[in-house]
Design a protein around this nucleic acid. Structure first.
Lengths: 196, 196
DNA sequence: CCCGTTGTGTCAGTGAATGACATAATAGGC
DNA sequence: GCCTATTATGTCATTCACTGACACAACGGG
């Protein structure tokens, strides 16, 4: 009944992050989060479908940014280059979010349950990228494979950037894509050379 | 108390697959699985840490096969080629398991909870591959990236093989790795050419 | 035949999640 | 400013996943 100032949703997220940092995810009950936010446990589950979801909200925005970037990209680019440019285009938002992302990632890294959810979000994001590529005319199979491997490369870059922000996301992204190029260019099952 | 013939663990797995196929994962309770297997719910959770895990047992064997294959590989090979050969080496076991893998995959594809667990298993497997590559002298960063992208390529191949077994796993694997080669060889952030 | 080990049953309890219903809070028309 | 439709919240009861503690049955040596 009491509808306090700050929207309950934000208060719940805030309370959840605090408690997860203090005691860890498993040692925190949904009721405790709700209590700190000044609402009922039932209200918690009205705002979030489950306890984990309270940590995964930025995902939707990131997906939108990336798929929009892909849609705006020239259709003549190779799939991986399209993805690379899309990733570069979210450099700013990522870096602005670092103060929030860093502790959040620490919490996730300490809880298998949260890691699972994160992997699910990453997979969903990759699927969205594949769809965006298809809309740019990329073949279905290629789009799926490019989106997945590109996504893993992006994760690789973001993780190393979180561990060491020097150079910004961009430097880590370039390095990761160059590593991928080095890995894949030097091996083909048939010994054919692909046109540039 | 009654210790019936077939080991309880197998009976539980069997019962679980049956029930999941009949009603779906969410509509099946752990107690029902246990009942069909002729044991108590408590016994179910003694054999499996949680309800999902009853579907994920082959994973350990596959990991062992792959890491062993990597360990036996000449240390001079490029990381992706090492992985490719390791994947080729498990072709037989995979095809032998098809009658079991196929319905299992259908169950998983219908349940978000099971998909999450599968992604977690895949990630753990990729981590094991990275570790095996490191033991072959591959640089830590490269090992991680190669394992992840190689793993995604493998998944891509296995999924398309499950959908259409024509040509066997090998054909799909070759196609997937060639697609990866085509994707990555044609794009580099800097316009440098990497030594073959 | 006894005994230690191991698998299982029983029971009680916690915590995540959901449905149903009542009620308070707010926005918009008047 | 008041009334009302909508929306946010509280309350209650319930299901189900999972866990700890304890007892006891089943089996494998000796």
């Amino acid at each position: 009944m009491p509808r306090n100032g700050e929207p309950a949703r934000r208060r719940l997220q805030q309370a959840a992050v605090e408690l997860f940092c203090e005691r860890g995810y498993d040692q925190t009950t949904a009721a405790e989060i709700a209590a700190r936010a000044g609402v009922t446990e039932r209200t918690f589950f009205r705002h979030f479908p489950d306890k984990r979801e309270v940590l995964f909200d930025g995902q939707a925005k990131l997906r939108e940014l990336l798929t929009d970037a892909i849609a705006r990209t020239p259709a003549t680019l190779k799939p991986l280059e399209t993805l690379y440019r899309a990733f570069r285009s979210v450099e700013k938002p990522l870096e602005d979010n670092r103060p929030f992302s860093f502790p959040r990632q620490q919490v996730i890294d300490r809880s298998p349950a949260l890691q699972e959810r994160e992997l699910a979000k990453v997979a969903a994001l990759a699927e969205a990228l594949a769809q965006a590529l298809r809309r740019r005319g990329v073949d279905e199979r290629l789009a799926a494979l490019a989106a997945r491997t590109g996504m893993e490369t992006f994760r690789h870059a973001v993780e190393s950037w979180l561990a060491d922000p020097a150079g910004g996301v961009g430097a880590h992204l370039d390095r990761a894509f160059d590593e991928l190029h080095g890995l894949a260019a030097s091996f083909s099952t048939r010994k054919t050379r692909h046109r540039q």
